[in-house]
């Protein structure tokens, strides 16, 4: 449903930020974009919906080229949730209603209001629908931004670090919502995320970015100790507990005398890593 081919971007001519990024996303799929700070992850998702203008390459949604669409039309196909939101003194209801902006001509129709009311109910935002967004906690505000993006009824949902400012419970709640909705509505969610374990929990496919290029793209099988070491420059061990695969960073690993002798996937007691 989303097709990205040879996408390249640079801020300055001699400093490429993205080079020949190519991948596909399917309906109902969650794709994690992983990589170091400065690898170009945020830039990538901004290039997808033309918040930034890519130098080369094309992005297709359901076979239609984003490059040939007007901004409003892009916004009907792709919704974007920024890393931090700056709305203030706008009620939750009105913030979500703003997600209908790409459809609104003169004023919101009954249908717009119905869609917004429905999303607010579905996401449990009803109790504070008339509070101002700047008075909410980080988790609540993030849900409002998500609700706004969903009000756009997009085919593709772009999330820039949706969990980085949230506590443990909210991280899982927000990603639960994202996964459920993308499955239910057949939306392809592309999520820039730093926490590999969260990504492994919620995402179906992984786009590893290293030095402005795609290092690997595929299912959970591409998340290996080697691939993480290559992408992040960090030693990790991958283990399993309670049927959940987890990545444990081991910064001191390399210095250990038994470094070579350790098995590829040592079993670590559950208490040590949770």
């Amino acid at each position: 449903m989303i097709t990205v081919r040879d996408l390249s971007f640079r801020y300055k001519p001699d400093r490429p930020v993205l080079e020949q990024i190519t991948f596909d996303g399917q309906k109902g799929e969650c794709i994690a974009v992983l990589g170091n700070n400065g690898a170009g992850k945020s830039t990538l998702i901004k290039c997808l919906n033309r918040i930034l203008q890519p130098r080369e390459g094309c992005v297709l949604v359901d076979g239609n080229s984003i490059g040939e669409m007007k901004r409003q039309e892009i916004a009907r196909n792709m919704a974007y949730v920024a890393q931090k939101n700056e709305w203030d003194r706008l009620t939750v209801f009105d913030s979500v209603l703003l997600g209908r902006k790409p459809y609104i001509k003169l004023g919101p129709t009954d249908q717009d209001i119905a869609i917004v009311s429905d999303i607010i109910k579905k996401m449990g935002l009803e109790p504070f629908q008339l509070r101002y967004v700047d008075e909410l906690s980080g988790g609540e505000a993030q849900k409002v931004m998500l609700a706004q993006a969903l009000a756009q009824q997009p085919r593709v949902l772009l999330l820039d670090e949706p969990t980085s400012n949230l506590d443990l419970k909210n991280q899982y709640e927000v990603l639960d919502i994202v996964r459920d909705i993308s499955k239910d509505e057949g939306i392809c969610a592309i999520i820039v995320i730093h926490d590999i374990n969260l990504a492994m929990r919620y995402c179906d496919r992984f786009l590893l970015i290293k030095d402005s290029r795609v290092y690997a793209y595929g299912g959970p099988e591409i998340i290996t100790e080697k691939s993480i070491r290559d992408v992040y420059g960090m030693d990790v061990v991958i283990t399993e507990t309670h049927g959940v695969k987890i990545v444990v960073p081991m910064p001191q690993y390399r210095d250990m005398p038994e470094y070579r002798e350790l098995p590829i996937s040592p079993v670590i007691p559950a208490a040590a890593c949770c």
Binding site: K46, N49, R50, I51, R71, Q72, E73, I74, A75, R76, M78, A79, Y80, V81, A82, N85, E86, W87, D88, L90, D94, L98, G99, K101, P102, A149, Q152, L158
Partner: peptide, 15 residues
């Protein structure tokens, strides 16, 4: 209204 969320969010909303 859309601009108050920052330039990038506004662009994402089709502004």
């Amino acid at each position: 209204n859309a601009l108050q969320g920052g330039d990038q969010s506004a662009k994402g909303l089709g502004v």
